[in-house]
Amino acid sequence: MLWIAIRMLTGDKQKFYGLVFGIAFSTLLITQQLTIFVNLIERGASGAYNVGEAEVWVMDPVSRTTDVAYALPPTALDAVRGVPGVDWAVPHLRSSASVRTRDGDLEGVAIIGVDDATLIGLPKRMAEGSIDVLSQPDSVIIDDVGAVNMFGEGRDPIGERLELNDQRAVVRAIADATPSFTSQVTLYTKYSQALNYVPGTRNRMSFVLAGVADGLTAEEVADRIESQTGLKAETRDEFAQAGVDFIIENTGIPTNFGITVVLGFVVGVAIVGLTFSLFIRDNIKQFGALKAIGVTNGRILRMVTVQAALVGLIGYGLGVLGTVAFLWGFSGSPFFKGFYIPWQIPLVSLVAVILILAITGVLALRSVFRTEPASVFR
């Protein structure tokens, strides 16, 4: 009987392909949009994860993310260093600035000042050059995505001269860093040099980065810092999550992507439901004949379930492969750097496909169950 069900399904090629297309399109839309959404909001955590050495981030109590921070007074650094359990602590500056290129273009950039002695605050990997270039005068390191955005594809930024706050800056290396949410150009330099590049204010230290002594956890040291200094201290994971939450709470991205995902589900139900109903209607005589020779509604339900499973398996596979092909095709674009498909997303798409097939199958089977066996002889 199950083989008969498959032959009935594949015998009508137009409706079979229509069902497969409906499932594949719905799966592609849901999987692709969820993948882009997750990767975009995860970039809110890039500022914290690009600094691999910092186990604890110390900031003003009103600061929220790496990009939304209130400057600390210089005394905060010594206060953090005096907390028991802090292995080391270094200053960290993050600020926005306008830069003028050699061609006369004006660009908005993010300036990151790292500790002069240890260079803690730089990304873990370098795409070109070495972190040692910061020992040279007026040196800056540009992130790889920012290099493409500022200078264009195929142009080597090494040696390019920039003007920052009437100060000279020379690009001497390229960092392999996770892009920020806005993909803004990021320039890394020493803390002392960064103070010359950003407009002068009384307090300019954005954060204090701290390490944890052996035998203690980051959570314990963060609690000690908060209780003894009155500043806010968060572990790297907590601060990264705060960046993600800030994007979710303050942008329309979740709503926009959520609408697209819902539309993908609705379109899948519409296409598959209509095509499945037409398939059942065109084969109502065959189902009636089966009931006339003694096939029960339960057996017919299993037959339709096999048909739906076959269509769902093929369509789901094509949809997921389409998402993989999409990411592979745009892997060379700096805007899609580091994009991946979390394992939870294909599971969400699979559940959506099962719901689509269940809803459309139940609606289509009503006419079959109401069909009288004698109707086939009329």
Results as ranks from 00 to 15, higher is better:
276 F>S: 05
295 V>T: 14
1 M>K: 06
173 A>G: 01
35 T>E: 07
109 V>I: 04
52 G>I: 08
17 Y>I: 15
324 V>H: 02
62 V>P: 10
220 E>F: 07
270 A>C: 01
283 N>S: 08
163 E>A: 03
157 P>C: 03
374 A>W: 09
267 V>W: 00
166 D>W: 02
150 M>H: 04
209 L>I: 09
149 N>T: 07
72 L>N: 10
2 L>E: 11
205 M>N: 13
219 E>W: 07
10 T>K: 12
263 L>Q: 01
225 I>H: 11
47 G>T: 13
294 G>R: 09
118 T>P: 04
152 G>F: 05
206 S>F: 08
61 P>F: 06
352 A>Y: 03
290 L>T: 07
165 N>I: 04
140 V>I: 07
325 A>R: 05
36 I>C: 03
269 V>Q: 00
138 D>C: 02
214 D>L: 10
202 R>C: 03
194 A>P: 06
358 A>R: 00
295 V>M: 15
158 I>A: 03
343 W>Q: 01
98 S>M: 13
112 I>V: 15
205 M>F: 08
183 S>T: 11
201 T>N: 14
8 M>W: 08
89 A>M: 12
83 V>Y: 05
96 S>E: 15
343 W>K: 00
314 I>K: 10
90 V>I: 15
373 P>K: 07
208 V>S: 04
228 Q>D: 10
362 V>E: 06
167 Q>H: 09
230 G>C: 02
176 D>W: 06
106 L>S: 13
369 F>R: 12
335 F>P: 00
35 T>A: 08
14 Q>C: 10
286 Q>W: 02
16 F>G: 09
338 G>N: 06
11 G>L: 11
358 A>P: 01
83 V>T: 09
91 P>Y: 10
53 E>Y: 06
20 V>T: 11
215 G>M: 07
181 F>D: 13
192 S>A: 15
229 T>Q: 04
207 F>Y: 15
127 A>P: 01
108 G>M: 09
40 L>W: 05
51 V>T: 06
196 N>G: 05
244 V>Q: 13
79 A>P: 01
287 F>Y: 13
326 F>G: 00
151 F>D: 00
319 G>V: 01
161 R>T: 14
158 I>Y: 05
367 S>A: 12
378 R>T: 14
78 D>A: 14
67 D>T: 13
233 A>K: 12
227 S>W: 01
304 V>W: 03
5 A>W: 07
37 F>S: 02
318 L>V: 11
124 K>V: 06
156 D>L: 02
355 L>F: 10
159 G>R: 06
226 E>Q: 14
10 T>P: 06
309 A>K: 09
139 S>N: 05
15 K>Y: 03
370 R>H: 09
